[in-house]
């Protein structure tokens, strides 16, 4: 798939040559720095790219339907029902002027054939499921009276209400503090086991990936640079970028004045993508070849692919 956005200077490609599969019951972690195209990938699946964005090339198949060719009306039937999404910012993802009940029941009534009373009962059931005590009172509350963790629980309840087959979680715990993070992750795990949904987990926190994911995709500058099962990634990361990401996790073992490792430089701007390997300017192994030719995704062993000239 390739996703481009219209800009003043012409089209810019935000996501390019991204291709992956996700099965029911599987959790796939998508990692990378900010600006790597993780969120654009997920919004492409939802076809929520806005007026300026479009999928230029490629196909997205979901349950036998090509999402890139579906009409807006057919997409609306999928959104919120078959494919649901949790966003990064629980503080701003709920509408401030409607009650929690209003926003939760809205989804339920839209996609499920329930009457007013049944939907309310179901909403209470969903809130209880995501660990909210006194769900009946919470239904009448406005978002601003809830904490970030509570709001994210509500978002999860909304997302899971219609039992989606695919749940896209775009940095669901980034804005939360660590203890709440753990609670939300535990909740997502538990709900995954109950529903058997596929989860696409977008994060830049490798700890969360290790905890949750079966398969990992590492994205850099709008492309997939490495794809492997979670064990291979942590045992033997191949791409220098993945290695860098793993080294920059702050550890507690050797904290004797060691400086935290960081990958030098920053992600190139999408308007000025370098020729050759997009990572070459930040890579310590870069050769002449890396500067001029772009590597392709190469299969090193089953379930492990990497886009690098080293292999």
């Amino acid at each position: 798939m390739q996703t481009v956005f219209r800009a003043d200077q012409g089209d810019v490609t935000a996501v390019d040559e991204v291709s992956f599969q996700i099965k029911l019951g599987e959790t796939i972690g998508i990692v990378g720095e900010s600006g790597c195209g993780k969120s654009v990938t997920s919004l492409s699946i939802m076809r929520l790219l806005g007026k300026e964005g479009r999928i230029q090339q490629g196909e997205i198949w979901f349950n036998g339907a090509n999402l890139t060719e579906l009409s807006e009306a057919d997409l609306r039937k999928l959104r919120g029902k078959e494919i649901a999404m949790i966003f990064q910012e629980p503080m701003t993802s709920l509408n401030p002027v409607f009650t929690i009940g209003n926003q939760l029941i809205e989804t339920i009534r839209l996609h499920m054939k329930l009457n007013r009373k049944e939907s309310k009962a179901y909403a209470i059931q969903m809130l209880t499921k995501v660990g909210i005590s006194r769900p009946e009172a919470i239904l009448k509350e406005y978002p601003h009276t809830l904490s970030g963790g509570m709001r994210q629980r509500v978002m999860i309840a909304i997302a899971l209400a219609c039992k989606p087959k695919l749940l896209i979680a775009d940095e669901p715990t980034t804005a939360l503090d660590v203890t709440v993070q753990a609670q939300i992750l535990r909740l997502m795990k538990q709900l995954r086991e109950e529903s058997g949904a596929a989860i696409m987990l977008i994060t830049h926190d490798l700890g969360i990936v290790a905890e949750m994911a079966d398969k990992v995709i590492v994205m850099y500058a709008g492309q997939i640079v490495e794809e492997a099962d979670v064990f291979s990634i942590f045992e033997k990361p191949l791409h220098p970028y993945t290695q860098g990401l793993l080294q920059s996790i702050p550890g507690t073992e050797n904290n004797d004045n060691n400086r935290l490792f960081g990958i030098p430089g920053s992600v190139p701007s999408i308007q000025r993508m370098p020729q050759g390997c997009r990572f070459h300017s930040r890579c310590e192994y870069a050769t002449e070849k890396c500067i001029h030719e772009q590597p392709t995704l190469k299969t090193i062993k089953p379930n492990h692919q990497v886009k690098c000239w080293l292999y």
Partner: peptide
């Protein structure tokens, strides 16, 4: 531009409802 409108669209709501309920009230 607000995030909650993206949430509303992601729920599968019709663009008309997104604009005239979720956006207009704000």
């Amino acid at each position: 531009k607000q995030d909650y409108l993206r949430t509303a669209r992601a729920k599968g709501l019709h663009a008309f409802i997104v604009t005239n309920k979720h956006a207009l009230r704000n």
